[in-house]
Design a protein around this nucleic acid. Structure first.
Lengths: 140, 140
DNA sequence: TTACTATTTTGTAATAATTACAATTTGGGA
DNA sequence: TCCCAAATTGTAATTATTACAAAATAGTAA
C-alpha cells in the first residue's frame, strides 16, 4: 500500500475531518481496490460488511475526501464518476472493449503550455481511450 | 469558420448520414458556438427557431455526429456532457470560478508514454482545471 | 455516570441528464 | 401519386446524484 494509512489519518486529522467507522471503510476500500470504482460499486461492496450503510453516506464521504484532496474524482464518460486514491499526477486509459481503466505515468511539461501562461492550474487530467493489449490479443 | 460546412456535409454523405433540417441546425449551432454547449443548451437555443424540435432529436443527432467523428463529447465533471466540433487534438481548461471552458494547444509526445507501448490509442483528452486570467484579476 | 451538543448517518424524496420506445411524420424513389 | 425507409417526436423509464429532515452517535463537561 503506497500511501500509509497512518499518514492519511494524520492528514485528515489536521483538516479537522473525523474518521468515523464508515469513512475509514471507504478509505480502506479505495486503498485496496485501485480500479477506479464508482460510488455505487463502493456502496455495494461495503454493504456486505456494513448492512446499515447508506448510499448517501458513501457520497458524503467521497465528497469530503475529494475536497480534502485525499481522493480524486474522475469522469471519463458514461456519465458516472469514478474515484481514485492516487493523487500524484498520472493519466487514465480506458479500454473501450473491456472497460478497464489503467493508470499510466505522464508528466506534462508546463513550459509547453504557452496558451495557459496566465492561468492558475490546480488540476491536470489526462484521459485516453482505445484498446488494451489483452483485448487486442483476444480480437486476433 | 475553420471547418467549412461543405466539407463537413461531404464527409457525412460519405458515411451515409443524411443531413436533415434538424441535424444541419445542430451542426450549425456547434460551428457557431464554440463554447462547448450541453445538449440542453443546444436544445433550448434551437427550439426558438424550431418550435417542434424534440430533445431526443438533439441527443440522437449528437450521438450520430460523435460516432461519425465530426463532434467530440467531453465530460470534465458535473455529470454533464459537453460537445465540441473541433476534432483536432487540443486540451480543455475549465475555470472553476466562472465555469468557462477554454481550448488550448497541446501535443503529447507519444514516445513519452512508455506505459502505453502495447495499447492502441484512439482518443486523447486533456482536461485542466483552475482559474482563468479574468477571474484571477477580479479576485484581487 | 449522566446530560448536552455537535457531528454523522440514514432513508426517503427530489432533481437532472440521458435513454428506450412506440407512434407519427417526412422525404425520396418507383 | 403511392410506398417505404429513415428521421422525428413525445412520453415514460432509467440512472446518478443531491437535498433534507429525523435518528443515531460520539465526545465533552459536570
Amino acid at each position: 500500500m503506497k500511501t500509509s494509512f497512518e499518514a492519511l489519518k494524520q492528514q485528515l486529522k489536521m483538516k479537522n475531518i473525523s474518521l468515523s467507522h464508515q469513512r475509514v471503510k471507504v478509505l480502506e476500500y479505495l486503498a485496496r481496490n485501485r480500479c477506479h470504482p464508482t460510488a455505487d460499486q463502493i456502496f455495494t461492496e461495503l454493504q456486505k460488511d456494513l448492512p446499515t450503510l447508506s448510499k448517501t453516506t458513501v457520497y458524503n464521504t467521497l465528497k469530503i475526501l475529494t475536497e480534502a484532496g485525499v481522493v480524486r474524482a474522475i469522469s471519463i464518460e458514461d456519465n458516472e464518476i469514478r474515484y481514485d486514491i492516487e493523487i500524484e499526477d498520472h493519466g487514465h486509459f480506458k479500454c473501450e472493449v473491456c472497460g478497464t481503466i489503467y493508470n499510466f505515468c505522464i508528466d506534462i511539461d508546463s513550459s509547453a503550455l504557452h496558451d495557459l501562461n496566465n492561468f492558475k492550474i490546480t488540476d491536470k487530467n489526462v484521459y485516453f481511450k482505445g484498446v488494451c493489449p489483452r483485448c487486442l490479443t483476444n480480437i486476433n
